[in-house]
Amino acid sequence: MKIGVVISEGPYTHQAADTAYHFVKSALAKGHEVPRVFFYHDGVNVSTRLSIPPQDERHIQKNWSALAAEHGVDLVVCIAAAQRRGLLDENEATRQGKDANNIAEGFRISGLGQLIEMGIQTDRLVMFGD
């Protein structure tokens, strides 16, 4: 079955990004497809590659990037939510005249159309948030 996932809460806040991660890992291990995870609202903060949690702690961004690399999960970051919170990829940094970018490997910035498309193309949509 195809399962789409939305995360709308930031990392290290409560548990949404962690619960979603364990859920997606289980779904993939059971043979389901998770074509896309959509990061919305504060959830976009998961995508910064500048996060440095203590070494003996889980690294939420790296966990997701690894899952994307291993299973081809499309990690989409909402552009409007990202711009408000200072999350930019190379293109956006150039377009907005900013001197840096911070989006991690495996994540890409796009729009709400990707959320709608995921809702249409998957059999189930599961939301994790605050």
Binding site: H22, F23, S26, A27, K30, D123, R124, L125, V126, M127
Partner: peptide, 14 residues
């Protein structure tokens, strides 16, 4: 978590 996934797939929506 495996049970969570099964619950998602065995119901029509979440």
């Amino acid at each position: 978590y495996d049970g969570f996934v099964d619950l998602v797939t065995s119901h029509d929506r979440t």
